[in-house]
Design a binder for these strands. Structure first.
Lengths: 248, 248
DNA sequence: CGTATTGTTGAGCGTAGTCAAAGTTAGTGG
DNA sequence: CCACTAACTTTGACTACGCTCAACAATACG
């Protein structure tokens, strides 16, 4: 991956949604950064650490999670390539959660100070960054609802819907088929269930002809019914272009 | 409440944490706004609505929530006076959740465009706003953990700890006592439990001498044990001066 | 003072958890 | 390329935490 293309997907995504001018784009492209290849399960951020760098995911998948005293893990969100994975920790001094790769991944670490300086110098870019973090926030809210008020089948179906839509939007799905980057244990940790129960729910979804799933490869066979079953409404993903707001 | 003091608590809070100069503060104070008194249970934002105003809570309490198809409600967060209650919806065009008052409240509605213009014109203020929303985000993450991976007693204890610390930080608690602005049904909706079970857990906490609670008035009797029981660590609140209820 | 809201109690049930073991797939090194 | 191992998935039997339903008590409030 050549240096000058590192930020290309990011610039493309942002220019589609926000009015970034050439200077904005150039400023993004000239951000200092160091590119790295991370093995699966590598920690990108550890809870309690001071964070000096922000991590942009160039390829692969990542997730956030937290541990409770009893030792259980709760996965907080999933991330696909093209996303900044810890703008969150960037603004708040110390990380309050862990970020880890789900797969082998390439990332670019960008010094926090450079990002904040860019946000201050180029308000349109700052707003794009803020906007991205607000979408993350919306997804957290939906996850609170998912683990708080939905039964196990609905919960799993909802999560699969979210993954299907987000991978689709990122161009990582064809014909309702995609690589599910999570083990059943990770699906369980994302939904607040046990891996045993998650396994049984997945079998039920297969039995009912909603999905086919084998070794990390998932195909949605009946999107309408899965969406219905999962009580899924994509609004919270805010995939549409945001309304244009011009400074007064 | 006189016009020029509407933003005073906000300016004070932000200047304590960020380096805002006089021009920044003046710009905040001169934000256009309309002040209103809202009765208890008033909607501030409704899911699906386009939002044109941001709501700053001047007094009273508010909460965010979402409904699932089955009709259950999940409370997503609580808000105390001095906080912007929907900077979230401000950046994203349409609201993805409801915001409602928990008590009679006074609020100031600020036009969204003015806020975004301010954020762009005065980067330090923009960063303060972004920072506030990132703390909300951190709290959402902790709530995902709370409802996803903690048992009922731990969950309720954790929520009570959060409320105690946040009300303490806002100067709304004295001597480990404060007004608990939630009914048991609302506590249940915040923790993903039923009101019946919440009632039983509260009784257990009273029986064990951790809290005393009667008609909306809660006193923490044993902060150390409650904190322990609730698996509570205030880091996620990112209070600069974590003013925890100290054991005398 | 009457009514609505909120809190409390009991009995029975069901969803999801626990524990343990076997089966399957993927990854690694010989 | 195969053998071996670790990781992941599946199954069964049993358990328990928290839910449901329903009635009643206490409190707030107009």
């Amino acid at each position: 991956m050549s240096e000058e293309h590192v930020f290309a997907p990011l610039v493309e995504r942002w220019t589609q949604r926000f009015q970034l001018d050439d200077a904005d784009c150039a400023a993004i492209r000239s951000l200092p950064h160091s590119e790295r290849l991370l093995e699966r399960d590598s920690y990108v951020v550890r809870e309690g650490e001071a964070s000096n760098n922000c991590c942009l995911l160039l390829s692969g998948f990542a997730y956030r999670h937290k541990l409770v005293r009893a030792g259980a893990r709760q996965i907080l969100s999933l991330h696909v390539s093209g996303e900044f994975v810890d703008l969150q920790n960037c603004l708040l001094g110390t990380a309050d959660h862990n970020v880890q790769t789900l797969s082998r991944a390439t990332v670019a670490f960008v010094p926090q100070a450079a990002l904040l300086a860019l946000a201050a110098a180029r308000p349109a870019v700052g707003r794009a960054m803020w906007h991205d973090t607000m979408i993350d926030s919306s997804i957290f809210r939906e996850w609170v609802v998912n683990v708080g008020r939905r039964d196990s089948v609905t919960r799993i179906a909802h999560l699969l819907c979210e993954i299907a839509v987000r991978l689709g939007a990122a161009g990582l799905a064809q014909d309702q088929s995609f690589i599910l980057p999570l083990t059943q244990e990770q699906l369980a940790d994302a939904t607040g269930l046990t891996s045993v129960h998650t396994n049984r729910v997945l079998q039920a979804l297969r039995r009912d002809g909603l999905i086919s799933l084998s070794t990390r490869s998932l195909k949605v066979l009946d999107w309408h019914r899965l969406r219905e079953l999962g009580d899924f409404n994509a609004r919270y993903l805010h995939l549409e272009t945001p309304r244009e707001l011009s400074p007064a």
